[in-house]
């Protein structure tokens, strides 16, 4: 355990140091994060200026959902994108061999090798949106912290889904872009789940659990806690299930890895 923590510190410090060479990227990431937050707020305001409340939530409450969404986006930009989207390259060029030969858990290596610092603006923006929402709703800072378990469950779910799709490339190299499909469906997390028609709600709860990613944590933030414990338990159950599933699936998938070009 201690060895893995030390490895993680090494992984992340080297990858951040490497990215620091391109400091202009920070400005670009900051501007893009500002732009998408402004666009997201504008999109929400189109409903509220006409007097329509999304699933009965007030504007600051809907902003809290957007905040959680932005935080999860930061997480995928920091870890999921730079690591999992590279599995296909390792398969295509046969460099997965080198990872499998290392005396480290290969899933650990492949999931956490790189930390992209350019996700920082998104993380800041997500926190800002959440803080603005809690301040508007006159909620305490503690309620924000109370959402952490739900957000962590969301991170587990997101990782499990992404990892499953990304490791499919061990069989099918050509579908390297399948994670972009997942990402575009996850855009549904910009709005509280109650804002969708029944069919959409069903799909985004049971087929693709977007509801657990953003709406459940946001409910804790804004204090709509009726029935919250149940959904939190479900979110954690689902997260742990997906995580355990990803471990099993990785081991299963590796059996089919034939090591290209070596």
């Amino acid at each position: 355990m201690k060895r893995y923590l030390r490895l993680l510190a090494l992984f992340w410090s080297t990858s951040v140091a490497q990215e620091m060479e391109y400091r202009l990227n920070f400005l670009l990431a900051l501007l893009s994060s500002l732009g998408s937050a402004a666009g997201g707020l504008f999109g929400l305001s189109l409903f509220y200026r006409a007097g329509h409340a999304l699933s009965g939530w007030t504007y600051p409450e809907a902003v809290a959902v957007l905040g959680v969404f932005t935080l999860l986006q930061a997480f995928s930009r920091a870890l999921l994108f730079p690591n999992l989207n590279r599995i296909v390259d390792h398969v295509q060029y046969g460099t997965l061999d080198f990872i499998l030969l290392k005396p480290v858990d290969s899933q650990f290596w492949i999931s956490l090798r790189i930390l992209s610092p350019w996700a920082l603006p998104d993380a800041l923006m997500g926190s800002l949106l959440l803080m603005w929402a809690t301040w508007q709703l006159k909620r305490s800072f503690l309620s924000l912290m109370g959402a952490l378990p739900a957000i962590l469950a969301g991170i587990l779910i997101l990782y499990g889904l992404w990892f499953f799709l990304a490791s499919l490339t061990i069989w099918f190299v050509k579908i390297y872009n399948v994670t972009y499909v997942l990402q575009s469906f996850l855009e549904a997390g910009r709005f509280p789940i109650g804002a969708y028609p029944a069919l959409f709600r069903w799909f985004f709860t049971f087929v693709l659990p977007v509801a657990f990613l953003t709406t459940v944590p946001a409910r804790q933030v804004v204090g709509r806690t009726a029935g919250h414990v149940g959904s939190l338990v479900m979110a954690w159950g689902l997260g742990l299930l997906l995580f355990a599933g990803s471990r099993m699936f990785w081991r299963f998938a590796l059996r089919f890895y034939t090591s290209a070009s070596s």
């Binding site: 872009n177 399948v178 499909v181 990402q183 575009s184």
Partner: peptide
Amino acid sequence: SEIYLWALAGVFPFILMGVWIRAAESGHF
């Protein structure tokens, strides 16, 4: 197969369609 996946990744309008259909039922728009 890659192109079909890109085409599927363009579902964004359908997601917004859901929200707007629901919003339109309120008759505000």
